[in-house]
Design a protein around this nucleic acid. Structure first.
Ligand SMILES: [Mn+2]
Ligand SMILES: [Mn+2]
Ligand SMILES: [Zn+2]
Ligand SMILES: [Zn+2]
Lengths: 136, 136
DNA sequence: GTCTGTAATTAGAATAAGTCTAAATACAGA
DNA sequence: TCTGTATTTAGACTTATTCTAATTACAGAC
């Protein structure tokens, strides 16, 4: 995804497309590894002619989450991770490597049987996280 | 659950039952509110004749997790919560209050239909977290 | 019952993730 | 070009958690 496409995407979401925001968004769209803010910072700072502040990375990530372009993941304590895949999907955490894999849901959607959510619990969303090992 | 019962439980799990550990464990067993380390600290320090160090609370929580008496929850960034319910169960997060409710799984267990875990993904565990509002 | 070595606890310092602040810079619209 | 607002910046600050070095508690040996 090139520079112009990212710019257009940001504008569609009502976000002023600055160089910093483009490069952060571009990185999150192209990676599939659910990076932390720190990882975004490292990955992205060489792509800019200028310096990049930590505050800008955090502000940008928060803005993108607010506007619905990213989702936040809390799979392990002390690390917030970011995911540009905002469709309804789930995750698999490899315990050894810590890597997080996306699990896509096909057409009809997912169905959980074997227990009832009590009537007074009105859920608007759910996520499933699997833990284990990916045998390569 | 009284003092002696907690002591016996800790010993069964191979944990030397000190006063601090008993009181932390006792609190987690009696509450259903998935407290943070800070909340455990506050709730528990008056139950001891002596002072209680932050380091002890964190060490104890980690020990109890290691030995399988507690599980850690990462439902929201920046807060690790603890859960003495270590059977297979799931959670409901009330977005307004932040409160976390347990969802028990009945006899036959839970079944997820609508997508396949790829063959090379060997999962030993999964958890489901629902988000929404509890209407009281 | 003491002695003694190890385990546990303590207060406070150190880290690390994330937020805030105040000043500088960029930029959209007049 | 001018001007006001939005964005970015470096670094201070906060908060959750971990580490450290010294003290205290305790289990087993005598
Ligand atoms: Mn991070
Ligand atoms: Mn906490
Ligand atoms: Zn994902
Ligand atoms: Zn629970």
């Amino acid at each position: 995804m090139n520079r112009t496409t990212v710019e257009e995407l940001l504008m569609e979401y009502g976000i002023q497309p600055t160089a910093q925001r483009c490069v952060v968004t571009g990185y999150l769209l192209e990676t599939d590894c659910h990076p932390t803010a720190e990882e975004v910072m490292r990955a992205v700072k060489d792509r800019l002619p200028c310096s990049l502040s930590r505050a800008t990375v955090y502000n940008t990530l928060k803005l993108l989450v607010d506007k619905g372009l990213l989702q936040e993941l809390s799979t392990e304590p002390g690390q917030t991770r970011y995911d540009a895949n905002t469709g309804h999907h789930h995750h698999f955490v490899d315990r050894e490597s810590g890597r997080i894999y996306d699990l896509e849901v096909d057409g009809e959607g997912i169905w959980i049987s074997g227990f009832e959510l009590p009537a007074e619990y009105k859920a608007d969303h759910f996520k499933i996280t699997f833990y284990g090992k990916v045998e390569s």
